[in-house]
Amino acid sequence: MHAIRDAQITDAPAIVSLLEALDYPGTDDFIKDRLLQLINHPDERLLVSVENEVVTGVISLHFIPQLALAGDFCRISYLCVSGETRGKGTGKALEEHAVHMARQRGCDRIEVHCHSRRTDAHRFYGRQGYAESPKYLCKSLKIVP
């Protein structure tokens, strides 16, 4: 059974480990600030899956109003499951919970941007009913010294 709940500040070490497994190292210094920001924002939800009091997965959701369509949309920005529980339904449970929340908020779609190198994730999202959409463009705003 996958217990899914809102993330808490005390989940920071587990979330740092999950992000490292997703190729996002070095979040230790700012993760608590990010967690507070997401937890307290009305259009954000940060959820964790817990088994035997251990955080086994995390999903970050953003609810975004659309200008030209009646429904909002939900964006999954991060979904990660621990290696020990991968393949046991944790990711599916988190994604299904996200879909349920998106429907409750009146969203007409849910989307995820997933790098081309994450082929296992592509297969997972395909099994969940996601389809490729038109090109996604990104511009970095990092300041280069």
Rank of each mutant, 00 (worst) to 15 (best):
residue 78 Y to R: 07
residue 138 C to K: 14
residue 97 H to Q: 13
residue 29 D to S: 15
residue 41 H to Q: 09
residue 136 Y to E: 12
residue 120 D to W: 06
residue 10 T to Q: 06
residue 1 M to P: 10
residue 103 R to H: 11
residue 22 L to I: 09
residue 76 I to G: 11
residue 96 E to Q: 13
residue 56 T to P: 04
residue 114 C to T: 12
residue 79 L to F: 01
residue 50 V to G: 05
residue 7 A to T: 04
residue 51 E to C: 14
residue 101 M to P: 00
residue 75 R to S: 12
residue 18 L to F: 08
residue 55 V to G: 05
residue 107 C to S: 06
residue 5 R to T: 05
residue 6 D to S: 14
residue 51 E to I: 10
residue 116 S to L: 10
residue 85 T to L: 13
residue 144 V to P: 01
residue 111 E to W: 12
residue 143 I to Q: 03
residue 99 V to L: 14
residue 48 V to P: 04
residue 18 L to G: 07
residue 11 D to N: 00
residue 111 E to I: 11
residue 93 A to V: 00
residue 35 L to H: 00
residue 142 K to S: 09
residue 61 L to C: 00
residue 41 H to C: 05
residue 33 D to E: 09
residue 6 D to I: 13
residue 4 I to P: 01
residue 80 C to D: 03
residue 76 I to M: 10
residue 114 C to M: 09
residue 34 R to H: 08
residue 69 L to Y: 11
residue 110 I to W: 09
residue 138 C to G: 10
residue 91 G to Q: 02
residue 19 L to R: 06
residue 34 R to E: 10
residue 136 Y to F: 14
residue 137 L to W: 15
residue 111 E to A: 14
residue 14 A to Q: 01
residue 78 Y to M: 11
residue 18 L to R: 05
residue 87 G to I: 11
residue 91 G to A: 04
residue 111 E to D: 13
residue 144 V to H: 10
residue 28 D to I: 13
residue 74 C to P: 02
residue 124 F to R: 11
residue 80 C to N: 03
residue 46 L to K: 03
residue 48 V to W: 02
residue 63 F to W: 02
residue 20 E to V: 15
residue 101 M to F: 01
residue 3 A to M: 15
residue 30 F to I: 07
residue 131 A to R: 15
residue 39 I to S: 06
residue 16 V to Y: 08
residue 85 T to Q: 15
residue 14 A to C: 02
residue 142 K to T: 08
residue 102 A to H: 07
residue 72 D to C: 15
residue 46 L to T: 08
residue 87 G to S: 10
residue 63 F to S: 02
residue 1 M to C: 12
residue 119 T to Y: 03
residue 117 R to S: 12
residue 19 L to K: 05
residue 64 I to E: 08
residue 114 C to Q: 12
residue 40 N to W: 07
residue 89 G to F: 04
residue 41 H to D: 10
residue 132 E to C: 09
residue 51 E to T: 12
residue 141 L to F: 07
residue 34 R to Q: 11
residue 31 I to E: 01
residue 66 Q to D: 04
residue 120 D to R: 15
residue 89 G to Y: 02
residue 125 Y to Q: 08
residue 84 E to V: 11
residue 80 C to A: 12
residue 108 D to H: 15
residue 3 A to R: 15
residue 66 Q to V: 00
residue 23 D to N: 14
residue 60 S to K: 00
residue 118 R to P: 02
residue 43 D to A: 06
residue 38 L to N: 07
residue 34 R to Y: 13
residue 71 G to Y: 09
residue 42 P to Y: 02
residue 11 D to P: 06
residue 5 R to Q: 04
residue 115 H to Y: 07
residue 29 D to V: 14
residue 61 L to D: 00
residue 25 P to S: 13
residue 138 C to E: 13
residue 136 Y to D: 10
residue 76 I to D: 12
residue 101 M to E: 03
residue 36 L to C: 06
residue 95 E to R: 07
residue 87 G to C: 09
residue 1 M to W: 05
residue 82 S to C: 14
residue 123 R to D: 08
residue 2 H to A: 14
residue 91 G to M: 02
residue 80 C to Q: 06
residue 126 G to M: 04
residue 108 D to I: 15
residue 61 L to P: 02
residue 10 T to K: 08
residue 33 D to Y: 03
residue 100 H to F: 08
residue 70 A to C: 11
residue 55 V to C: 04
